[in-house]
Amino acid sequence: MSRRAPPGPLDYGRRLWLRFSLWATFLFLYAPILMLVAFSFNDSRRNIVWRGFTLKYYEKAWNNDSLIEAFTNSLTIALVSTVASVILGMMTAVLLWRFRFPGKAPYEGAMSLPIIIPEICMGVAMMAFFARIGWPANLPWPLNLGAITIAHISFSFPFVAMVVRARLARFNPELEEAARDLGASQWQSFRDVLLPYMRPGLVAGGLLAFTLSLDDFVITFFTSGPETVTFPVKVYSMIRFSVTPEVNAASTVLIAITLFLTTIALWLQNRAQSS
């Protein structure tokens, strides 16, 4: 009988307590999600015990016009606010990285405020702000999403700026100078050297902004009008009456979409890096 060697200092996988905590983490992280997905196929209204497989709640969700509308609203807001946040966040990061100007430190602090102040305060502030300036209600779609989108941009772009800024801190400024030295104009050296360097940060920041916008409840709740309902707000109002598998089905679709987009983004980034 051969005795197994004692675990080495870096053999974490063989230490029992570490393995235990690893599995526990997985359990707490993913069990609720797996449950949600599984029960979206459950053939039962009360949704507590498994009664057999069905797709009827997907069909029901698909035919629930207000749910689909909320879903479309959410995706539209997320897309627009992601694009805007990436551009704005990138410009902010480059500004803070490249230039020295009076009031830079306060500016930098103010920029990260949306990250640290409680969401509820931000929501109330946004609501008060839009009411004060008399933001028009009853605009046609998609203009009626303007207020929510602006609110989402304002709390997402600092995240993009932070991610890109962190990456820029390791940028060798001689690379940009080398491009200039070889004949590139300022814009060309930005496009050919700085932008490719920032790309992983932009992708990561974009993903962050997308998910932040997609699942934001508090700020959206305060800035949405009666006709502009987003998916999280809609789910909340549905659940107040009853937990139906319809909600599970819609959530599963949302998870699928998010995973799909993330995969595409990562794949794009990988391809850019390996080429």
């Binding site: 060798n172 001689e174 690379l175 100078e177 080398a178 491009a179 030295d181 070889l182 004949g183 590139a184 060309q188 050919d192 050297v193 490719p196 360097y197 850019a272 890096q273």
Partner: peptide, 25 residues
Amino acid sequence: NMVFQSYAVFPHMTVAENVAYGLKV
């Protein structure tokens, strides 16, 4: 033209693309 202390070779371009950059731009 300058050869920088850190060489500043563009990491996202191949050797040939690096050399061609000044001619293309």
